[in-house]
Design a binder for these strands. Structure first.
Lengths: 122, 122
DNA sequence: ATAACATATGTTCAATCATTCATATGTATG
DNA sequence: CATACATATGAATGATTGAACATATGTTAT
């Protein structure tokens, strides 16, 4: 996917002057799969509906229906988003009769959102 | 935007049984503008091109042309993404003659990405 | 088994977005 | 001022996506 044809550089030649820096960068850059997964993870936080859902789950587990009520959205919309969050490993669920309770999967979720929140609140 | 018409609840009545919990949640939930900004921030991390750019800038400031070379993409594509990153306050730039050097705007960027990276690497 | 309810899923559609291409702007140099 | 180069920007386009709607699945109680 990522190609570094340093031989073909015609115009900007800054990189030639520091080719050791380039190799260093190439080594430090995580592989494509990890970068893709990282982007996919952050994509989950990049929607205000999903952010709202996660904020609700910060406080306690909650069923789909009540999350929908709290956010003023349809059950379907919430269920679809919970599915995405579940597939990304951000939330987990337990079933109790007809009801399915969702909760945060691990503490990273809190940490990441809080970091973002700090940044936004400046 | 978010409506909580708890009067109109017909089916799922769990929330009535714990209405003090609901009010608690409503108070803890940040206002719409902050939630929107938070989502916008994470949206910036939710694209592998932008993630790659930020990883490059982790190591040192770099000009548009060289970022493009390193990622194997066109100057235009990178410039467009840098614009988005700049508008979100994630990167800053300095001009030196014809060249524009971009760098990370603050340390939050590193922290947020590192947290996400930890989550992904499990 | 049937009805009622909570949740999940498939499809569709409008909106958003990342990239490309063409072109403009800004900067140094001859 | 003209040329070369680095970057920025506007328009067009194909791909992705969030939500709505209809419907299916799963669970409980009668």
């Amino acid at each position: 996917m990522v190609q570094n044809n340093f031989e073909d550089i015609e115009r900007c030649d800054y990189i030639h002057a520091r080719s050791e820096k380039v190799e260093e960068l190439d080594q430090l850059m995580p592989d494509d799969e990890k970068l893709y997964n990282l982007a996919e993870l952050f994509k989950m936080f990049g929607d205000s509906t999903r952010i709202r859902i996660l904020f609700v789950l910060f406080e306690s587990e909650m069923c789909v229906c009540n999350i929908a009520q709290l956010l003023g959205m349809t059950q379907s919309a919430i269920s679809h988003q919970l599915r995405a969050l579940k597939q990304s490993g951000l939330v987990k669920y337990r079933r109790d009769g007809k009801t399915v309770y969702y909760s945060l999967a691990d503490s990273h979720v809190r940490t990441i959102i809080n970091q973002g929140f700090e940044h936004v609140c400046e």
